[in-house]
């Protein structure tokens, strides 16, 4: 990986904000990656050192990452944070050019050019006594701190997470520690319940008529299905939206979504909204905005990788906990 020296004449892109000194002697060039874990061929976890953010972060918030000086700014939900270790945990799915490049280049000991956050309004851990926390795909990681938050607040937590197949499963142990009930759903039935997370929700609602709240994080189509599943039961359903953004501070308006018929900016008004009010079709359409450009960038990049015999490889510590 190219070592991006981002210290330019006193302009630091630095982390340590409370004093002039660099913490633990780590140079103020970017944000150090302390650990990486690969969950599958496409999904990997990073622990990034940022003590100030680790103290400030709350469940439901996100960061914007920029990998290098030609990179784009991409929003990623904070999967976990550890004030004691001073780390922010992100789970990244390599789907497009930028995320595949991250998969190739981000290594333990490496640096990330830019990471800013925590952004967005934190999730409101309500007084709910019984909640279902639903995570699908990439949403499995960020639903974890919410489940933990509800557990700490004394709620009865039912965890429902969905994966395509058993070999993609991660964090089962972590979830079991904070959930009173825990269900895994797989598309192919290779583990847990065969089917979508909505079937897990239906099953949980059938067993527990007194569910106060559902929190769902995942692909828009999944969150939409979750909202539809709870609508007839009139159970409050919170979803976390992750539309296209540039700055993440309310300045560009690229992340605008329709909620209850009104325009909201997911970066500053959200990212959490009432799932029964969100116009998911609108969200899904807007996510297609740069489809052609994204495809072109990925093709071009893959072609370059082939040419340079730098086929994206999977290294790092295999396996999850």
């Amino acid at each position: 990986m190219v070592d991006h020296d981002n210290r330019r004449d006193g302009v630091t892109r630095a982390r340590d904000l409370t004093s002039g000194a660099n913490m633990d002697g780590i140079a103020a060039s970017g944000f150090p990656i302390l650990a990486r874990t690969d969950f599958s061929d496409t999904t990997f976890l990073l622990e990034i050192y940022h003590p100030t953010m680790a103290r400030a972060a709350r469940p439901g918030q996100f960061v914007i990452l920029i990998a290098h000086d030609h990179g784009e700014r991409i929003p990623l939900t904070i999967a976990d944070f550890d004030p004691a270790k001073g780390t922010i945990t992100l789970v990244i799915q390599a789907v497009g050019k930028t995320t595949r490049e991250m998969q190739r280049d981000f290594r333990k000991g490496g640096n990330i050019l830019g990471m800013v956050g925590p952004m967005g309004e934190p999730s409101h851990i309500s007084e709910a006594k019984k909640v279902i926390c639903v995570g699908g795909g990439l949403g499995v990681a960020p639903i974890f701190p919410q489940a933990r938050g509800f557990k700490q607040a004394g709620a009865y937590v039912i965890g429902v997470v969905g994966f395509r197949s058993s070999d993609l499963i991660f964090w089962e142990d972590k979830f079991r520690q904070v959930c009173d009930e825990f269900m895994i759903c797989t598309d192919d039935g290779s583990a847990g319940l065969k089917g979508l997370v909505t079937e897990g929700i239906e099953a949980a609602i059938a067993r527990h008529p007194d569910i106060d709240e559902v929190v769902a994080i995942g692909p828009p189509i999944m969150m939409k299905a979750c909202a539809e599943a709870t609508r007839p039961h009139k159970i409050k359903t919170i979803v976390s939206l992750n539309p296209i953004m540039v700055d993440g501070t309310g300045m560009c308006g690229g992340c605008r979504v329709r909620v209850g018929g009104r325009i909201k900016f997911a970066c500053v008004d959200g990212p959490d909204f009432d799932g029964h009010d969100v116009d998911f079709d609108d969200l899904m359409t807007r996510l297609q905005r740069f489809k052609e450009d994204e495809r072109m960038a990925l093709e071009k990049w893959s072609e370059n990788c082939r040419r340079l015999a730098l086929e994206p490889s999977q290294t790092g510590e295999k396996g999850g906990s």
Binding site: V11, T12, R13, A14, L17, T52, M53, A56, Q61, G114, M115, V116, G117, P118, M119, G248, T249
Partner: peptide, 9 residues
Amino acid sequence: KCNTLAGRL
């Protein structure tokens, strides 16, 4: 100091 969102950080 760039990459620093005052208010949130």
